[in-house]
Amino acid sequence: MNLFRLFGDLSHLASIFILLHKIYTTRSCRGISFKTQALYVAVFVSRYIDFTYISVYNTLMKLFFIGSSCYILYLMRIKYRPTHDPSIDTFRVEYLVGPCVLLGLIFNYQFTVIEVLWSFSIFLESVAILPQLFMLQRTGEAETITTHYLAALGAYRALYIPNWIYRYFTEGTVDPIAVTAGLVQTGLYLDFFYVYFTKVMQGQKFELPA
């Protein structure tokens, strides 16, 4: 465990709390892609069913991410269902899941169910944000709190990059699957980060140029 990873994980944790806060305070899941949230459930479930014990920290975090992502689906599907507009959440998820299954089958560290699911989850996580970004692109604007959620989520993956560099020098290990997918995932946030830093951080509303 190094500071980059710790802060990355804390940022991930924060992103969930920001999302819950947004849903509670506005009593609405407007602007949040149900598809992206459903993909995160798929990511966490397929990755964390590997019951290898690492540490208390690791186990608690895994339970938290599975539990909170399912709870968010419940909030979106049942409690605040009328506030979700499926007509703008139109990204075709099968175009993401299909290729990720294929990639998981081709690129893995061992051809076992657990390992294929693990690498599938890594690939899927890297693109799971696309329905959300697509929705943002379509509406052209977002509530400030939603952008804070996305920024925290993006920061989590961005912080994993220095973590991998650090681990390369201190432990001599490189996880090519995680690194490749992680770079792609962080790359997807670049446009968003640009607008976030130039607008939201300056106190303006998040609006994309027409």
Binding site: D9, K62, E171, T173, P176, A178
Partner: peptide
């Protein structure tokens, strides 16, 4: 370089 022995990252 080697990949990590276990998937210890989240």
């Amino acid at each position: 370089v080697n990949p990590p022995k276990s998937h210890d990252e989240l």
